[in-house]
Nucleic acid binder design. Structure first.
Lengths: 246, 246
DNA sequence: GTAATAGTGTCTATAAGACACTATTGA
DNA sequence: TCAATAGTGTCTTATAGACACTATTAC
């Protein structure tokens, strides 16, 4: 029997290239509100496999640049949108023998929420086109690369679910907003109307907003502008929005 | 400029061994209730790295045997416990340059709930010892391999959190149980007392249990035995257990 | 003034917590 | 009978939904 190795010796002889291991990547569903609907950022693949198909932005971990998985996610988001401090949450990992033609692969899916104002979308070497697309349209009519359709579904479900008991939609609005704008954002994601008084009571009682002092004027009564207190971007309510009683 | 490759040509020339990619594994926090406390299954590592340290059970994806990530998780669970149809849920993936001495690595963490009755723990070539250990003790006094301490914390947090609004603890009990036993299980995980009447109302109104007809006799009034309806193992309540009001 | 949107008062409904009460067993 | 645990009746509390009401602007 061979003499036992020390951990140092073991690591010295260890060569990852000798093993059959899965490809590992990060993919993101970056959501925003545009044109009164929930949209998601898609890139058109400029490389094989699935060249020419629309896909969620993502890519491989850069073992040199990235110290952690969340670094990879932030880097990808920054590359595509120029934004680097949005709401970012890991959702789920998808791994199987057949989700990528190159072989067994694992992808870690992230969900990001950003306000689309002032975002300049940027293509890079792996994508020839970048665009915002209606989530509803993508889910009903499109055919995304790999299993990105399923990944988008899971991220969208996670978002819809969390909107029932958190303040996440705040992250989809600019820094100053009115309560009506915030309510509309909740309604767009939930897909149901929300009762105005309950909504305002809920948000204001949570003490997560500050009046900025400014007012939003339009063609009617002006509305108070609010901004979010630091912890307000990820507040958890003790009860869910229940929706209309029939 | 080179002629463009077809996808077929691209895939033929693709060799995963040419790339620097992270190691990818699956680790599990397998929870049970034993001795009136929440315990987690640990294995003592028989191989480098971290040889001799206690760790969460887990291992690499077997590209031949496993078609999906969840296959890997089920396989690992079966290897250690002999159980293969428990409650199993993916929790989060952890990836970084320094969590494993062998290099950049990603692990997908799963949470499993099983009843410890009739489980025969089995060591294999990568673990010389397998044991149940109090979660409280592990978190307070032990030093697990890799970042398994952090992974256990996250899985434990996920469990505590979900117990507030789901029926998950049902999965920690044998097929027949009394309402008092179920309540105790909730209390052990939550770490707070639960009000008896509220608890029974909540569980029975949810219509997730069936009376088996049997009674559990002891030295006092016998208690009705219940079993779970098929969908009852993962019921979501519309409101959370709030705990005592002060 | 009117139209339109902002914002409030106050009722009901639902489900949780509190807690005292009754019920059924073994010894 | 008593100790112990099973199980219930019913009040209070917290927060959501309903919906009509008032407030403030542009025109």
């Amino acid at each position: 029997m061979a003499k036992e190795l020390t951990e140092k010796q073991f690591l010295k002889r260890y060569d990852i290239h000798e093993f059959d291991i899965p490809l590992t990547s990060v993919d993101m569903a970056i959501f925003t509100i545009r044109g009164g609907e929930l949209q998601v950022l898609l890139v058109k693949r400029a490389q094989h496999p699935s060249k020419g198909l629309w896909a969620l932005p993502g890519g491989f971990i850069d073992l040199k640049k990235d110290r952690t998985l969340s670094d990879t996610a932030h880097r990808k988001l920054l590359e595509k949108t120029g934004v680097d401090t949005p709401y970012l949450e890991q959702v789920e990992s998808f791994g199987s023998a057949d989700r990528d033609a190159r072989g067994w692969s694992v992808t870690v899916a992230y969900l990001a929420l950003i306000t689309c104002d002032d975002i300049v979308l940027a293509a890079d070497e792996s994508s020839e086109e970048v665009t915002w697309m209606s989530v509803e349209k993508v889910e009903q009519e499109m055919d995304l690369a790999f299993d990105h359709q399923a990944i988008l579904d899971v991220c969208h479900d996670r978002l819809k679910n969390k909107v029932q008991y958190t303040s996440l939609p705040i992250n989809l609005l600019p820094t100053e907003f009115t309560l009506t704008e915030l309510q509309k954002t909740f309604e767009i994601i939930l897909g149901i109307p929300v009762e105005k008084k309950s909504f305002r009571r809920r948000i204001l009682d949570a003490d997560i907003l500050e009046e900025t002092g400014g007012m939003k004027t339009g063609s009617n009564r002006p509305a108070k502008l609010y901004s979010t207190k630091p912890e307000g971007v990820k507040h958890f309510f003790s009860r869910s929005i229940e929706g209309p009683r029939r």
